[in-house]
Simulated assay, not measured.
Amino acid sequence: MPQLSRRAFAGALPLGLVGGSLLGGGLMAGASAPAFGATPEAAGTSPMPVSVTPLAQIRIGRFTVTALTDGYADMPYAFFPGRSAAEVEQAATAQFTARPSGVRFLFNQYLVEDGERRILIDAGPAGSIGKTGALPEALNALGLRRDQIDAVIVTHMHQDHMGGLIAGGKNNYPKAELYIDRRDVTHWTDPAKRNGAPDYLQTSFRMAEEVVRLYPKLQAIDGEREIVRGVSIVDLTGHTPGHIGVRIEDGGQSLIMVSDMIFPVVHPGTTDVFFLFEQDRAAAQAMRDRFFPRAASEGALIAATHMPFPGLGRIVADRGQMRWQVADWAFQG
Rank of each mutant, 00 (worst) to 15 (best):
V154G: 13
E41M: 12
H243L: 09
V103I: 06
A330M: 10
M157Y: 02
P54H: 10
G169P: 08
R194C: 06
A123K: 03
E87A: 09
M261G: 02
A167L: 06
G115S: 11
F292M: 02
D328C: 08
Y72M: 09
Q57A: 15
A73E: 14
V246D: 04
A126C: 02
M162A: 14
L218N: 04
A29V: 06
M207G: 05
P241G: 08
E87G: 08
Y200S: 05
S101T: 13
Q332C: 09
I315Y: 15
T203W: 09
R281V: 07
V228W: 00
A38K: 11
K217H: 13
I129N: 10
A317K: 15
A42W: 02
Q109E: 10
G20D: 01
A296Q: 14
A141W: 03
V231H: 01
L111T: 08
D147L: 01
V50L: 15
V18N: 13
R294A: 15
V185Y: 02
V234I: 10
R314F: 12
A141T: 07
F291P: 02
R288I: 05
S46H: 12
V326A: 15
G311A: 15
G130H: 01
Y110C: 02
L218M: 13
A141H: 09
L201Y: 12
H161S: 07
G163I: 01
R62H: 11
P14H: 06
D318H: 13
S232C: 13
I315Q: 10
G245F: 09
H187K: 01
G24N: 09
Y215L: 09
Y110A: 02
L27R: 01
D318F: 10
G230W: 00
L23A: 07
V212Q: 03
A192N: 03
